[in-house]
């Protein structure tokens, strides 16, 4: 199979998963579509050395996660607010408790560095174990553990201050 064929097959098979990943982190369809394009560019750049099929989902999952967090960082930089996660926009079905939880999480996330945010997201939101998060981000388990501790400590301080 030629590179182009392999690439379009990967896009067809994994496109929805990439979009879902971006939408979950960015919570905005237009921004998720933009992020998908960036992931697509990464796929094009790596088309001749894509991992074998069973590992491709994991690969694009990590790429999409990094792209989305970089997009959040850049958006925050552009607007200079430092807290530009789109999670403050309540959905019509959200209850008061959900909105309150989201605002608390937003406050906690806004205090964290990009690396801490990504680790916290993978472990606390996506439900990965620290070992899995370490493997996905090519970090040691110890580093992931430290970042989680730091994130939680800062979050508690930020929330209760």
């Amino acid at each position: 199979m030629r590179d182009g064929d392999a690439l379009s097959e990967v896009c067809r098979r994994l496109g929805p998963a990439i979009y879902r990943r971006c939408l979950k982190i960015l919570r905005n369809p237009d921004e998720a579509a933009d992020a998908c394009q960036k992931v697509y560019m990464q796929l094009v750049r790596h088309r001749s050395r894509l991992p074998p099929e069973p590992e491709q989902l994991r690969w694009v999952y990590v790429v999409a996660t990094r792209v989305c967090f970089a997009q959040l960082r850049d958006d925050a930089w552009e607007t200079a607010s430092g807290a530009e996660l789109n999670h403050d926009a309540p959905a019509p079905t959200d209850s008061f408790a959900e909105v309150a939880d989201r605002q608390m999480a937003l406050k906690a996330l806004s205090c964290a560095t990009e690396h801490e945010r990504m680790v916290a997201w993978l472990v606390l939101v996506d439900g990965h174990s620290q070992e899995e998060a370490a493997e996905l981000l090519s970090l040691s388990r110890k580093t992931v553990g430290k970042r989680i501790q730091l994130f939680l400590a800062n979050a508690r301080r930020g929330v209760f201050e």
């Binding site: 379009s8 097959e9 896009c11 929805p16 979009y19 879902r20």
Partner: peptide, 24 residues
């Protein structure tokens, strides 16, 4: 359910991604 909904939105909004292999 959210995943299925997002898949539908993706297929609706980004048909080129889904059809790349078939259109060539």
């Amino acid at each position: 359910r959210s995943a299925a909904e997002a898949s539908r939105a993706f297929a609706r909004e980004n048909p080129r991604w889904m059809a790349t292999t078939q259109a060539r």
